Simulated assay, not measured.
Amino acid sequence: MSSRSSAALAGLALAVLAAGCADPAADRVSLVSAAQPPASPPLPSLTAVSPQPSPVVSSGPVRHPFPLATSLAEPMATGTPLAATGSPRFFLSARAPLAHFPGKSKTAVFTPVPPAVHNAETGSFIANIPLPPGVESSWHLVAAARDNRTFAIAGWTEPKNPDIRFFLVRLGEDGQPGKPVVVTQTDPDDLTLVYDLALSADGTRLAYSTPLIGGGAKISVLDVTTGRRRDWKTLTHSMVRGLSWAPDGRSLAYVLGGRAIALLDLARLGTDPEGAASRIIKNATGAMPFESLAHTPDGSALIYASGHTVERVPLAGGPTQVLARPELPPDASLSLRFSVDGTGEHLLYVHKWRAYRVALADGAVTSVPITVDERPGEGGSPRAAW
């Protein structure tokens, strides 16, 4: 087995163990720019790359890291947002391949698993999502557009040379998935570990975050039709999570190292590496980390979790508001990973094989068991989105 495959499989095994703890918008109508909050000093550690022709990659051995991609000259997603459809009827679950260590072997054997569609009210299984050619299993990332019908999913390629690929799927009104559409990148990117995934409100852009070889992390914005991409990097933080698109598609919120919430202005890229405008929205003040983020439907505020407490903070500044304090079991992760539906009224999180629904108006929590192929799930907790 090659060193690259060994490293990727080792990363997969760690991710599996840690997990234990369609058609894009057809009409693209420009939106009026949202009012920008007061300017703050840019983060020196996050840089954008000016548009340049994509580098030519030789057919020789792959070297790390690839140069940051610059071929997507317009990373904003300002097309017509997909319309919210009211209270969510479905959610999607995705998980990494199941890892087994037969006998006393130290080598894992992986069993591929498909992503699945579930009834949002009962958690019951509706259908497995077909995997596109070349994708053997789901990965543990799924992102939803606000219409509760369009989803982006991460998939895992064959074990001998494992990579992560992205594809889109659209659900019918009965929850049955259509044919998956692979997002084929035009710029080289070695995706063996992805932290997070987010789909823009108009369904035309996919944002994801990955670690950088040698330290640091990268945010990428990918055009789902052309495969062109633009990258930003931070060398002072090893992990970037909680990606969330603003409803107008002009900015992207994210979490730096679990300790700060920041906003990247996609409309102010500039022509030199320091041209991007990025500012801190909120710093963590206690021991509890940040993980997930979601914009409110009007784009004026962010919903986030500090530990297990769900809060709301205005982008223009001001006091935070506590929305819910769900009580998780003692063995739950210290941070809360969640998905907020397109109406901004319902929050979803998963612990083991139960889905928890939080009404953000009053903080009420209900839960349902998640079934797969009409049976209880196995392995670590899946990721879920609606």
Rank of each mutant, 00 (worst) to 15 (best):
M239F: 12
D196P: 04
I153V: 15
K233W: 00
K106M: 14
I370G: 03
A8L: 05
D272Q: 10
F90Y: 15
L336N: 06
A145Y: 05
T343D: 13
S138A: 15
V56N: 13
P42F: 10
S5L: 00
S93R: 08
A19R: 01
E327P: 05
F166Y: 13
L199E: 05
E74P: 03
A10W: 00
R4Y: 09
L193W: 10
A384D: 01
L92S: 08
G215K: 02
R4N: 05
E374V: 09
S292R: 03
A253H: 01
T192L: 11
A26N: 08
A324G: 01
S251G: 07
L197I: 08
V182K: 09
K233R: 13
R149F: 02
T296I: 07
L14M: 14
V194M: 15
E74K: 06
D27V: 11
G344K: 09
H237M: 14
R165W: 09
A207C: 12
A108Y: 07
S251I: 01
P177N: 15
S105F: 00
T210C: 11
K104F: 09
G363N: 03
A15K: 08
A127H: 10
R250C: 05
G215C: 04
R312M: 13
F110P: 03
G123H: 02
S2A: 12
R89G: 11
N161K: 13
L168F: 04
A26P: 07
I303M: 05
K179W: 05
L31E: 07
S238R: 05
P51T: 12
L360D: 04
G380L: 00
D163H: 12
P273N: 15
S58H: 09
S251K: 05
L347I: 00
P376G: 03
V183S: 07
P289L: 03
V169R: 02
L266H: 05
I153S: 08
L256Q: 09
P177Q: 14
